[in-house]
Amino acid sequence: MKIADLKPKVLEILQQPELPINHKMQAVCDLLQSNVDTYDWVGFYMAHETEPTLHLWNQAGEPTDHTVIPFGKGICGQVAVSNKNFVVDDVHAQDNYIACSIHVKSEVVIPMFKDGKNIGQIDIDSNTPNAFNEEDERFLEWVNELVAAQL
């Protein structure tokens, strides 16, 4: 499915007032992981309020042991510090990469902001090298804006 075709489905999920935000975030993970061929693992990591760590709130795909990530560690931890998108075309070329699966070839991490503060991120792993482009970045930024507005 094309990314543009997913926008109405994301909106439909996030506009359900009866669903708690955590359920909405899980539904978004499930939707993206099951409908975009190169999105093999999709997760939301959220920043801890008092400690410099990220905590896995939701995920779709293979289970991961990486449920808490210190700021600065791995791609997610680097995004927590830099506040910038990070697209990794080849995870094996990164020195500061936390391997979640031997099958992962590329990754994209997009920070999520609320009132100018980095509160978390969406993290997507792909078993395909060079899987992500600018269209993915813009789409995921949009997803994060909608989710952050409900937090």
Rank of each mutant, 00 (worst) to 15 (best):
K9F: 03
Q59R: 14
N35Y: 10
V87N: 01
K84P: 01
V87D: 00
E107I: 02
H55R: 15
N96L: 03
E12Y: 12
D123F: 08
A60V: 07
Q121K: 00
I75R: 07
P17A: 12
L146A: 06
S126P: 10
L151P: 03
V68Y: 08
D89P: 02
E135N: 13
V68E: 14
M46G: 04
F44K: 06
G61I: 05
P52I: 10
E107H: 02
A27F: 11
L32A: 00
I110C: 03
N35A: 11
Q121D: 03
A148T: 11
K73I: 09
Q16W: 03
E137L: 10
P63K: 12
N58E: 13
K9L: 09
Q150G: 06
L140Q: 08
L14G: 10
D90A: 09
Q78G: 04
F44A: 01
I124F: 00
E134I: 05
I21D: 07
A99F: 05
E141L: 09
N58D: 07
F113I: 07
K117S: 11
E49Y: 10
F139Q: 01
S34P: 05
A99R: 13
T67P: 00
N133A: 04
Y97P: 02
T53K: 15
S82Y: 02
A99C: 13
E62P: 09
I110F: 01
Q15Y: 12
F44V: 04
I3K: 13
P111D: 01
T67Q: 13
W41I: 01
G43H: 13
V143R: 11
A80E: 08
L11G: 04
E12S: 09
W41Q: 04
K9A: 04
C29P: 00
Q150W: 07
A149I: 06
H55D: 08
V88M: 01
D40A: 04
Q16S: 08
D95G: 04
C29A: 11
P70A: 15
I98N: 00
P52A: 13
E18G: 09
N96W: 04
D5T: 14
P129W: 09
D89E: 15
Y45E: 15
K9P: 01
I69S: 07
D40L: 01
P52C: 11
E141H: 12
E137P: 00
A80S: 15
S34K: 15
V28A: 06
G77A: 14
V143A: 08
S101I: 00
S101M: 00
D65T: 12
S106L: 02
L32W: 02
L31D: 14
T64H: 10
A148W: 09
N127P: 03
A80I: 13
E141S: 09
N85D: 13
Q94V: 15
F44T: 03
N58W: 06
E137V: 14
Y39V: 02
V87C: 02
E12K: 09
L6S: 01
S106I: 01
G120T: 03
